[in-house]
Amino acid sequence: MTLVIFAVLLWVLGFGLNVMLANGPARDTGAVRLAVPLIFGLTILGMWELIVRGMQVSTVILPPPSLIAASFAENLSTLWGDFVQTILKGALSGYIFGCGAAFLTALLVDRSDYLRRGLLPLGNFMAALPIVGTAPILVMWFGFGWQSKAAVVVLMVYFPMLVNTVAGLSETTAMQRDLMRTYAATWGQTLWTLRLPAALPFVFNGLKICSTLALIGAIVAEFFGSPTLGLGFRISTSIGQLDLGMVWSAILVSALSGTAFYGLVALAERRMTFWHASHRGGR
């Protein structure tokens, strides 16, 4: 019981500190902006540990963070294998292939008004569908290996990427197009100097959405069949063995990879669309 009281104390302490920081004189500095969410996260972690131990919650329901950390450290090599299988082989290859194919399709579609008006509503429709449901079919077609996961990812990322790129390519103003006409620029020159740069914010928006979708596709597809490797496989089999420390470790790996993946895309976006209104606030 004392541990639970400690947890309450920790909450009061952490939140109080945050209130002080957030309303204090340094509230708009970068350090505080970083510290407040970190303190919040650490407080939650600490309370989790204390309450789970204090109330003696069964580890099946919720293992304490220390147990997850221990399990994570113990199984580093297994988890690394799962990471390579699911993230690098399944998600990343499917992501590159799917987004690349969608980008090329968008360039193709862009040349024909008929294709654009036909494919855009269809793509919007497909992007809202639960495409992850095709996983059992694709696992049946391409086998249990990473190829079937990549195939699911390709299907999942294709339509959101297509819709975003097509929308981006039509994101020029009448004046910009007129300017290119006064130069008698060719289609290729207009594409390269005007429409691709103007489309970049949309392209990156698509890439960011797709980075999360790719991970979801690769992990869920493993629930339908996989070799004895992979994050989805690890989660479903460890649940069967009630090894919740391992389950949470696998979830931690997928969460970290998801954030890192998204972060990398966002970083590239910042570098390449520094000129866009949403990024140049500070200058």
């Binding site: 103003t173 004046m175 910009q176 007129d178 300017l179 290119m180 006064t182 130069y183 008698a184 620029a185 020159q189 100097t193 005007l194 740069p197 970049l200 669309t273 000129w275 866009h276």
Partner: peptide, 28 residues
């Protein structure tokens, strides 16, 4: 390319520097 055209708004491309904006017609 008999004429240069100046629009109501400057319409410079935000992803190009001033120099590269002016070089745009020359590149084309």
């Amino acid at each position: 390319r008999a004429y240069g055209y100046v629009f109501q708004a400057a319409g410079l491309y935000p992803w190009r520097t001033i120099g590269r904006n002016i070089a745009l017609p020359l590149e084309i």
